[in-house]
Write a protein that binds this DNA or RNA. Structure first.
Lengths: 212, 212, 212, 212
DNA sequence: CATGAATGAGGTTTCATTCAT
DNA sequence: TATGAATGAAACCTCATTCAT
């Protein structure tokens, strides 16, 4: 299994009837509930189904196996974060570079923080579920968004450094992870947000100068 | 399990006899072998014992349970990294700030990179084994080392910012994680090393200025 | 379940409307398709229904349960074989004994061989479906046909030996089964046909003489 | 699964301690007990383990899966039959051809009849368990034994017809199957035995003449 | 009549851990 | 002390069958 392929975690069948859509929703939400209340190691398909108010059989009608269930939850979460960042990229166009970075970083941190508990819980299941491939995919999307954003920066003379963006993203999300997993206080979180902005701004400024 | 307590993962008895030490060594190494060859989900105590050339019973003589076994392996790994960083801190005393950061970051990256495969594999087991508490402990040790190092910096007027150090560490190790888990190429690794130095230097310079 | 009762496997309702007949046909054929393509252990009612282009519910409208479905397919197959043999019996009347046997055996072998794959596949499901009772019933019909045929033989002085016919049938169909299940080549099949004729002729000659 | 490979059903580990041998024996016998008392479709690994007086875990220590368990039972049974036939082949050397056939056929029928219930029950599980490959293997062994036997016959001018032997075996074992599955009476069995001798004698005589 | 979502008992298999030898 | 046979709870997943729409 390990990392590798992104596919093979797709849901089993797309619900056509209204009832089915509700069911799938309920299962996804129940998954998160169980994850938060019982922890990843006590998350069993039976328990999820029970909490969702359906039978195991129903669960397996929509998700071919436990992994795909967790994968779908993780995917939805990561995509929401990506979208927030992309939105920020759109909003920040043509602003000064420092402002750009600020918007992007804050969008990312905020997206991860709204449901800090969920973010933290999902870190645990990610590796067992093909999460690294997923993370790569989302990271690429963000990278692209940020790349286009930086192109629009007034200060930008040459094309932005793709690798630097990657590093910045890695540092940012890596730091978030550590802090979220650590279960740090809300105040620590606030300080982190502000420092991460500073860190990214400093780094981007540094790489830009270096290349000049 | 969650995060939380650091204790309760200590080995069952400290080997006093020479033979016992050898056995414990063999088991620890076997654990890593199995982890690398079969993956975390196929790591069973029986398999580890078999590869170590002992019986399961013997394994349980030295480790009260599977977690403690994995914990000990993870601990050894993290401690080695911490020690490398602490060494770097000692070596870098009284050098200019930029140089300091460079030494520390490179020590960290190199320590993680010597056995990139092991580093990557251990990420997977960490959460199931009390790894976050361990990570916190080691992070604190590094923080302390770096704090003392920065105090000795010629540029340092006031006391160094503890929180900034924490952020720097988080960014650095978080980025490493992403890259190691991603299984990136050696060349990417080299570029990462150099960029991470830049990033940390830029950030530390920025926070210092900000406070001034 | 075991063997035992022949009944209780009858379809649920005899289709009166033309559309219904078509549906039942489609389901029966789908059953065979699935059996051949996926094997007996992967034959699920849902899959059969899907291949037949109807819903499971519809399938259960015409067959009270999975067994009855398989039973009906098996029944149709066995009856066709029986009919071919009975036809041969009618055709062979008043011919010399050797000729009679030849006609009957070849009719049987040919009937089984036209769709060798189906014959082979059905062997697997037979025991789970009340097949032995069915086989007995069909065997009895053939026995009767052959009995009447032999009565018409010029060589026949006394009444033919019922038990000998049974043995002959058992040997013949048993050998066929082994070969069909073995998935033997078409050439092996041809040789089998010819040898089976010889075998039955020899046996019938022997019993007749013995009784004389 | 289907037919095909003979391997991949081998037991998981050969018991080294005396206790283990007893356990394996108990499990095998329990398998047969359950097969006879509850039928193939109600034979669960848990039930077998329970009847054997061990836990499921123990069962799976010696048999990698349910199939291998059934396979081993079937194998033991078929091998015993083969051995009886081979013994008969040795005993019948240099006797007249008719006598030879008689000995072999009776040995086969008797071997199958001693535990008619077991023989019948095993027919049902054979196809799900790689039985056809096994049957082929055993058939070949018998064929070889009979071939060598026939070579020693005084009447034997040329080399015996391999294919004819195969047909004879198929007819004989096929007929046995039908009768055993039919659950026929002991008297029917006795008559079958005698007729099968006659049948095989007649057939072998016929083929021999034909070739001359 | 047809549909297909829902059911849930129950089967197979794993593996951390113990303890008699 | 070392061994490895035995344990058994518990997880995942299937699929025949029903019934509301």
């Amino acid at each position: 299994m390990a990392s590798g392929t992104l596919a093979a975690f797709e849901p089993r069948k797309t619900p056509v009837q209204a009832r089915a859509t509700v069911t799938v929703q309920a299962i996804s939400e129940a998954t998160i509930q169980v994850l938060l209340r019982h922890g990843a190691e006590s998350l069993t398909t039976t328990r999820v189904a029970h909490r969702a108010g359906v039978s195991v059989g129903t669960l397996y009608q929509y998700f071919p196996n436990k992994q795909s269930l967790l994968f779908s939850v993780l995917e939805r979460h990561l995509e929401k974060v990506t979208e927030e960042v992309e939105d920020a990229c759109r909003r920040a166009r043509y602003k000064p570079l420092t402002e750009m970075i600020k918007e992007v970083v804050e969008a990312f941190v905020d997206a991860k923080t709204v449901r800090a508990d969920i973010s933290a819980a999902l870190y645990k299941i990610a590796p067992d579920v093909g999460g690294i491939a997923l993370v790569k995919r989302e990271a690429q999307r963000m990278r692209k968004g940020i790349f286009r954003l930086l192109e629009s920066a007034p200060e930008c003379k040459a094309s932005p450094d793709e690798f630097a963006i990657q590093i910045m993203l890695a540092a940012m999300s890596g730091a978030m992870r550590l802090v979220l997993e650590g279960g740090d206080s809300t105040t620590a979180m606030r300080k982190l947000r502000e420092q991460l902005v500073l860190l990214c701004q400093a780094y981007m400024a540094a790489t830009t100068n270096q290349h000049a």
